[in-house]
Design a protein around this nucleic acid. Structure first.
Length: 182
DNA sequence: TAGGCCATCTGGTCCT
DNA sequence: AGGACCAGATGGCCTA
């Protein structure tokens, strides 16, 4: 699979207006002040904003454009949509951080994140059920603990099957230790 | 260069 | 009425 640790990208709008990028895009300013954004990313965002303004200028000149009010509403709507998607992405990131996975060097894609989360929940559910029946899984012998997890991990992550059993073993051990410690 | 992934724009629909 | 949500379209970036 491909590396997904990429900077945020911006696309020039098909419709844009009079407002300068600075005055109408909190996200872009957010892109400039976000805690996780590097200077390079801020530069990129600024550059993209400039490109948008340029496109806006070109489009403004054409006849039959939208009325100002309508355009303004659309821009506000776009901004809300961006914010909404950013929240969604933050949630995805938070989810990535709590899902154990074997490719720590590569960022999980959204679909991988969702699939692994589902499998992780299944694994934990299985653990709870095992605990509730008073039977601890043996971490040294390939426990049933993550049969669910391993199963669809292979489905979601094509290369997971190639991963050494050690990762799963470690995962089991960690869960086991956690349970013994708690 | 193709394909995967992603951000953004956009218009429609639903909800408050 | 206005905002939230959704899905399709578009185009950029990256890797094989």
């Amino acid at each position: 699979m491909k590396t997904k640790n990429r900077p945020p990208r911006r696309r020039a709008p098909l419709q844009d207006t009079e407002a300068t990028p600075e005055e109408r895009t909190p996200e872009r300013s957010q892109a400039g002040s976000g805690p996780e954004l590097t200077k390079g990313l801020r530069n990129r965002a600024a550059k993209a904003a400039g490109a948008r303004a340029e496109v806006a200028g070109r489009r403004r000149q054409g006849p039959g454009g939208r009325r100002d009010n309508s355009i303004q509403r659309r821009l506000e709507s776009n901004e809300r949509e961006r914010q909404r998607m950013h929240k969604l992405n933050n949630a995805f990131q938070a989810l990535r951080e709590v899902i154990p996975h074997v490719r720590a060097d590569k960022k999980l894609s959204k679909i991988e994140t969702l699939t692994l989360a589902k499998n992780y929940i299944k694994s934990l559910t299985a653990t709870i059920l095992t605990m509730s029946s008073g039977c601890l899984p043996d971490p040294a012998s390939g426990p049933k603990l993550y049969q669910h997890y391993q199963q669809a991990t292979g489905g979601a992550l094509g290369d997971t099957e190639a991963q050494p059993q050690g990762h799963l073993q470690r995962y089991s051990t960690q869960i086991h230790s956690f349970r013994e410690g708690s």
